[in-house]
Amino acid sequence: MAQIVVEDLRKRFVVAERRAGMLGALAGVVRRRHRVVEALAGVGFRVDEGELVGYIGPNGAGKSTTVKVLAGILVPDGGRCEVQGRVPWLERVEHVARIGVVFGQRTQLWWDLPVVESFELLREIYRVDRQQYRVRLDALVNALDVGAVLDVPVRQLSLGQRMRCDVVAALLHAPQLLFLDEPTIGLDAPAKLAVREFVRRLNRERGTTVILTTHDMDDIEALCSRVVVIDHGRISCDGSLDHLRERAGVGRRIIVDLERDEPLAPTDARVVSREGTRVVLAFDPVRTPAAALVARITREHAVRDLFVENPPIEEIVARLYGEADARGEAEPRPEPREDPS
């Protein structure tokens, strides 16, 4: 069943332009110049229950605008949007009681208070039954391993501890839909892994739908079965990671370590780089099956080692964005006024 339905979502912002210098500031007092920024230019997608979707795009592409609309904070100019059968901005209170939101950059916990007191207050705010709260809290605290810091004031927590507590806070009311905005930003490697593992289990075992916006492509690669790419306020790609790779046309890679320094340039593959005896080739697996290519190379050259891999997702995304840029207007892209995320 579709949990999120978005069709032709549109949003424009009017941004006041600042003029430089003292004179500009004075002139700005008299008359402000405005500029219209199209943050969403007809965005559409559906998300089914239990999906784990990565929502990515360059800064200012409309990512956080979309999330804000889905979360019920922002009212769009046009288009349709239904989340769990509700129009988010029309029934804000009912809507937000059933979603969870985690912003990696800011906490929703009370700064001066021990963590557990923030949880208690959230229990009251979200009208969670005391019995259910106990059960959920225990489970979440165990899963995220924050039992030791429950009585510590938030301001004394490390970033990783705080982040995990924020995840607990967002799930106390057991939402069926969770928005994660940069959940691993600034975390060290173990903390990142812990958060990822938890999100994966949440999605698998509880069937919670997760929308993940991030700049960390490792998050995407580790978690997301589906990736939606937004650019210039439009969806530029929507599908599985493999589909994304295909779309970007980056192809697959084969890395060859030769016995001796000799030229290697098969006709159906492109040389990406060459460093001493190591050659990196890119090829299109649809036209050229990997097995055939490998067989031919080993036949024609003395090969010490050889392996095939998918290109890093950063490269794919860079490709996609670059493509979109080339398609885009000649004018430099205006930065919409929204949180960079």
């Binding site: 019920g72 904070i73 912003f103 929703q108």
Partner: peptide, 13 residues
């Protein structure tokens, strides 16, 4: 600071 958004995300006036 943008923290007003956080209030909008909670099911209260």
């Amino acid at each position: 600071s943008g923290d007003f958004d956080r209030l909008l995300l909670r099911p209260r006036g």
